[in-house]
Design a protein around this nucleic acid. Structure first.
Lengths: 235, 235
DNA sequence: CAGTATCCGATGCGATACTG
DNA sequence: CAGTATCGCATCGGATACTG
């Protein structure tokens, strides 16, 4: 009888794991914790997960009382929201990420690098207050990627509070071009490579607006795990 | 391509989940964190897991640098030990258990009750310092169980620092007999039912040594999650 | 956009048997 | 006790197509 779904134990670790340690579920929770509420937004964070499975997982989380599905205020579509129980998972997911950042070697395996995930992450954490108030267009070019994966645009409309990620050239004048290979940009984002070192070594190059170049370190948000230090022990 | 093992993401939550959110793995970690080092001891905590899978998971954890396999000091068998990385998971596993205790309804589903797991847990947390120094034999009888699952014995030899769990009558004189249905005893163990209430209501009955009866509350350890309070909100 | 229904192939994992 | 090797199938989950 393979996989009876459930561990058959009353232990709270087991009962909790039945819900939150299912495949993909920690990542779905991560997306919700970082503020995604709509189905397709969540799915952008886990693009390799099939939509049917995401749908199933969301139903399971709802059944477990971790999320509720309700109409998004203002819009007439419905979304998913963490309950108190779900909010209580925030420190756990964060702790798992910090543990991963600190102890899991084999980050940056080639197969894990993904420009779309990286750009989607960067977009979320751009520090808008450090950008000019007027419209800003920033192009990212990953020099080792081809075609569809090579160039990306972040677009902030004048006065807007959100950044848009574009897969096609929006046509406006480019204010800044960021040029790097995917691994370097990912390492910078993850805090594995210092921004200043990346710029000085040429691993990341900036072209365009002097103001945007100088403030790069300010407006480029880093991963929320970028601050995590290596373990004390030399292993 | 079902289940490529791995999420294809550089995010530390994903990299961590690839290791610690695999099926059974949180429970294996729980066993190690609670002090089990030997293969069969670990397996007693996850009896529904096949030995081949446990073996596989241990290899994966070793490969991930979470445990090391080495000879147990004093004995000439080898066991498994948490590394620094593994020790760093302790607060996470504990937090998951606390979350589960607080938020997962559907504890005490009939299918999750298991006298052998319960007794194995109780054995581990018996407060020996609250037992008489001489030999002590305590019999547990689960009144709703049959045959092989009905009676269990905890045996402390005179002066011993460990308790032995017996599935067959060790033959010595019984100092105390604890009588309860499995669910009541489990609820008491999990902190869902107060010990004094259980005794007063007759859900748990004690027969035998007056000293052992009076000190029951002291020597019976409760689950490490028994202290966790319900959420503030009424849900 | 926001999902659901159906299909079916790969694989995870339990069962069993075996080794030192 | 402490595992490993082999086998078989149930189920997990991706692909595809479809709906409002």
């Amino acid at each position: 009888m393979p996989r009876r779904t459930g561990y058959g134990q009353f232990c709270p670790v087991a009962k909790a794991s039945e819900v939150i340690a299912e495949r993909w579920t920690p990542l779905v929770l991560r997306e919700m914790i970082t503020g995604c509420n709509r189905f397709n937004d969540i799915h952008r964070g886990v693009p390799l997960m099939s939509k049917s499975l995401l749908s199933k997982r969301l139903r399971e989380l709802e059944h477990a009382g971790i999320i509720v599905r309700k109409e998004i205020p203002g819009e007439s579509v419905n979304g998913y929201f963490l309950t108190e129980s779900g909010e209580a998972l925030r420190p756990i997911i964060i702790a798992i990420g910090e543990w991963g950042q600190r102890y899991v070697r084999s980050n940056f395996e080639h197969q894990d690098l993904d420009p779309s995930l990286l750009m989607w992450d960067i977009r979320r954490l751009i520090q808008i207050r450090h950008l000019p108030a007027e419209q800003v267009v920033i192009e990212f070019e990953f020099t080792d990627q081809t075609d569809a994966q090579r160039r990306w645009w972040l677009l902030k409309e004048a006065g807007a509070g959100e950044i848009e990620l574009c897969l096609h050239d929006p046509g406006y004048e480019i204010d800044l071009r960021v040029e790097a290979d995917l691994e370097s940009m990912t390492r910078v984002w993850m805090g594995e490579m210092d921004v200043s070192i990346a710029l000085r070594s040429g691993a990341v190059k900036l072209h365009g607006s002097r103001a945007l170049r100088l403030s790069f370190q300010d407006w480029i948000g880093l991963s929320i795990f970028a601050h995590v230090e290596a373990p004390l022990s030399v292993s």
